[in-house]
Computed example of a mutant assay.
Amino acid sequence: MIVPPPETSSPVHATGASRLPHVEPAGGTFGRRETRLMTILLVARLEAAGIDHVCRVRNLSQTGMMIECSTVLAEDDRVRVELRNLQAVDARVAWARDGRAGLQLDGPIVIDAVLGTVPDSSAIIARTPRIAANCPTVLWHLGTLSASVLCDLSQSGCRILIASPLPRDSEVRITIPGLSPRRARMRWSNGESVGFAFLEMLSFAEVSAWQTDRSVRFASDRAEI
Rank of each mutant, 00 (worst) to 15 (best):
S193K: 15
T175V: 11
T29F: 10
I51H: 11
T117E: 13
R183N: 08
R33V: 09
E200M: 14
E47V: 09
L41C: 02
E75F: 08
A96L: 05
H22T: 05
E192V: 05
V149G: 09
L83D: 09
A49C: 14
Q87H: 15
G195W: 07
R78P: 02
V23L: 13
L139H: 04
L150H: 01
N134R: 15
I67G: 03
V118L: 12
L150Y: 07
D120Y: 06
P177T: 01
M38I: 14
D52T: 14
R217S: 13
A132R: 13
R185Q: 13
R33Y: 04
A197E: 01
A163W: 08
G116W: 05
P181D: 08
V207P: 06
D52Y: 05
I125F: 13
S208P: 01
F198T: 10
A205F: 08
V3Y: 15
D152W: 03
A223G: 01
T175M: 01
A17S: 10
L150R: 01
G50V: 12
A209I: 12
W95V: 11
G116S: 02
W188P: 00
I40E: 10
H13Y: 10
V43R: 05
N134S: 14
H53R: 15
G102L: 07
F198N: 04
A48W: 02
R36P: 06
H141M: 00
I40Q: 02
V43H: 07
N59T: 09
M66Y: 01
I109H: 09
L161I: 00
R217V: 14
F218V: 14
L179K: 12
P181A: 12
Q155D: 08
E206S: 11
W188F: 12
E200S: 11
A113Q: 09
T39C: 14
G50W: 09
Q87C: 13
R33E: 07
S9K: 12
D106Q: 02
T29L: 00
S156C: 03
R92Q: 15
V43L: 10
R78T: 00
T35Q: 07
V207E: 00
L103W: 03
I225M: 12
T71D: 01
R45C: 10
Q104C: 03
V81G: 04
M201A: 15
P5I: 08
A26W: 12
V12N: 08
A205I: 04
E7G: 06
C69N: 06
A26Y: 15
R45Y: 04
C151T: 04
E7F: 02
G28H: 05
D52I: 03
S9G: 12
N134V: 00
S10Q: 14
R84K: 11
A219M: 07
S189V: 05
D221W: 01
A205V: 09
P129F: 04
G16I: 05
A26Q: 10
C158F: 05
A101N: 02
S164C: 04
V118P: 03
L86Q: 09
L166T: 07
F198Y: 11
M66F: 00
I51Y: 13
L83Y: 00
S164L: 03
D213V: 14
L46H: 04
P5Q: 15
I40V: 09
R168C: 08
V54T: 14
I124P: 08
R182F: 07
A223F: 03
V89M: 06
Q155T: 07
Q155M: 12
A132H: 06
